[in-house]
């Protein structure tokens, strides 16, 4: 049995199959329970895979040798966001100035509020600096954390947790604020929960998805400039 396992575990193919099969299962499960974001397919899938890796004593690098082929597709998928964005370009043009203003307000709020709350609760400085870029998509967050002295790898993880929290808290907040425009919903999701939020926004409509993708790109750009300046102003 153990030699059987070693043979399969050494093949990158195995972890691709595990990742896709687990995700299919958790998507099915999520539909069965009525699509609650508490059992978000991504969150459940990654929890199950972490448990499986720990049960089989597999380290993350081994897993990633297979899973990197799925991870790689994030690049072309990000480029592909241009298609829904083009489809809704007329809306984007009409809303350009409000979008830029909302993006600046949102990006400053995201960075400032997380630093303020964590500082009040007595977080260590490295945690504080790793939290600052949490609303940006992972590759940008890693660069920012490096620049200001946080842990880049932790920052990448916190970005994912933020994404999940965003998908959880946004729908009830939208109902409370009576937000009915899918463009506003999508933009807010993309700004506060980056790629996670964008994937989630596509479940509302392609319009929401297009605006989420736009927000993700804009926020990344703005945060990369704002956070280092904020950190210096706060004397961290």
């Amino acid at each position: 049995m153990s030699s059987f396992w070693v043979y399969f575990a050494a093949k990158p193919l195995w972890w691709i199959i595990v990742t896709i099969a687990t995700f299919l299962f958790t998507s099915w499960l999520n539909r069965r329970v009525g699509g609650t974001p508490l059992l978000h397919p991504v969150l459940v899938a990654l929890s199950l895979i972490i448990v499986l890796l720990q049960l089989t004593g597999t380290d993350y690098n081994t897993y990633f040798e297979g899973a990197q082929f799925i991870h790689f597709l994030l690049g072309p998928a990000t480029v592909a966001l241009a298609v829904p964005l083009y489809d809704h370009f007329e809306r984007v043009k009409k809303m350009l100035l409000p979008l830029l203003i909302a993006c600046s307000c949102g990006a400053v709020t995201a960075a400032l509020s997380v630093i303020a709350v964590a500082w009040l609760l007595g977080a260590s400085e490295a945690t504080l600096l790793s939290l600052a870029p949490k609303s940006v998509t992972s590759p940008i967050a890693i660069g920012i954390a490096e620049k200001i002295g946080g842990y880049p790898s932790l920052a990448a993880g916190l970005v994912l947790i933020t994404g999940a929290i965003g998908c959880l808290v946004a729908p009830p907040l939208f109902r409370w604020l009576k937000i009915e425009d899918d463009a506003v919903k999508g933009f807010t999701l993309g700004l506060s929960a980056h790629g996670f939020g964008t994937a989630f926004a596509f479940e509302f409509s392609t319009l929401a998805g297009a605006f989420a993708g736009l927000a993700m790109g804009l926020t990344g750009l703005l945060t990369a400039f704002i956070v280092p300046v904020l950190v210096r102003l706060l004397g961290l």
């Binding site: 899973a67 799925i70 991870h71 996670f196």
Partner: peptide, 8 residues
């Protein structure tokens, strides 16, 4: 898109 975030 959601599947692509699982490995990270």
């Amino acid at each position: 898109l959601a599947l692509l975030f699982v490995p990270a």
